Simulated scan of single mutants.
Amino acid sequence: MVVAYLRVSTNKQHLENQQEEIKKFAAHRGLDIDKWYHDVVSGKVHSNDRKLGDLLESLQEGDCLIVTEVSRLSRTLIDIMNIINTCIQRKIVLHSTKEGYTFENNLNSKILGFAFGLVAEIERNLISIRTREALAVRKAEGKKLGRPYGSCPQLNVLIQNKEKIIELMDNSVPYKKIAKKYKVSICTVNRFVKQHINESK
């Protein structure tokens, strides 16, 4: 199966250019697109909280995923790296048309994937260092650290629907489906259950 994934950040942007580029790429490679997926969402949103998450889960060994640029997958290098590695390990071929990248289960792809991974690890370490330095400065200035209680919008959505969520849990609905229903991350669902359901028992 050959699948194309398109993403724009806002409704004011258009998907047509990406779609035409992928069509030309597929025609040149003799590929027929079986399914088209598109997201209108910021690339900073984790892939699991977009249609891309369901798309990646549905792909099987030997399937092909086409994007115009790897930045269509995510705006964070760490997330991009995880997606690339997932595709390589599951033997899913990933094409990026503009950059000319093809990631598959071969040595060249693994070397390229390693290079991406090294850069992602450096980026992750730099983010960690910058975060610690910023927190140290705030602490030295006497400012209170952490998010004020009750200021997390995603968590508040779950709190407002606590009874409905308990009913879903009683019916063995997976956390992932609950997260998707209320448009929050799985981490937020886990946090909600721990803080507002388990502790109240």
Rank of each mutant, 00 (worst) to 15 (best):
I166D: 04
G100Q: 04
Q60I: 13
S185D: 02
K177S: 12
V119W: 14
A4P: 11
G146C: 04
H14S: 15
T131I: 10
I92Q: 14
N108Q: 15
V173T: 07
M81C: 15
V67Q: 02
L112A: 06
K51E: 00
R191A: 12
K181M: 15
Y175R: 14
R90F: 01
S42L: 01
A120V: 07
K12M: 09
I129G: 03
V70D: 06
I197Y: 03
V45L: 00
E133R: 15
S42P: 05
Y182G: 06
C64P: 10
Q18G: 03
F192G: 04
R130T: 01
Y149P: 15
K139H: 13
K164Q: 06
S128L: 14
G62Y: 10
S71K: 09
I88Q: 02
N171G: 11
I186Q: 08
T10V: 07
G113E: 06
R130W: 00
L168T: 01
R147Y: 09
R138E: 04
K176G: 06
E123Q: 03
T68W: 05
D54N: 15
V40S: 01
V67Y: 00
I197Q: 03
I92W: 14
N11Y: 14
K183Y: 00
Y101G: 04
P153H: 01
V193A: 09
L52C: 02
L52G: 00
K110Q: 11
I165S: 00
H196K: 08
A134T: 04
N198T: 12
P148K: 00
I80L: 01
Q13Y: 05
V3H: 13
L155D: 09
D49G: 01
T76D: 12
Q13I: 06
K177F: 08
K44S: 04
K44I: 00
E57I: 09
A136G: 04
I84D: 02
N105L: 03
T10F: 03
P153R: 02
L168M: 03
N198A: 12
L155C: 11
V173A: 05
M81D: 13
C187G: 14
A140D: 13
K162Y: 04
D32W: 13
S74Y: 02
V189P: 00
T97I: 11
L31H: 08
K139M: 12
I80A: 00
V119P: 10
K177M: 12
M1D: 11
K181G: 12
N11H: 14
R75K: 08
N105M: 04
T188C: 02
K144R: 11
K144N: 08
L55Y: 05
H196L: 06
G53P: 02
N190R: 12
V184S: 04
K144Q: 10
V3R: 15
I178R: 02
E123V: 08
C64R: 15
L15K: 08
K164H: 07
A4H: 11
A120Y: 05
I166G: 05
K181R: 14
D34M: 12
G113F: 13
G150N: 08
N105F: 05
L112D: 01
M169H: 10
N171D: 12
V40N: 01
K91H: 08
T76Y: 09
D34L: 11
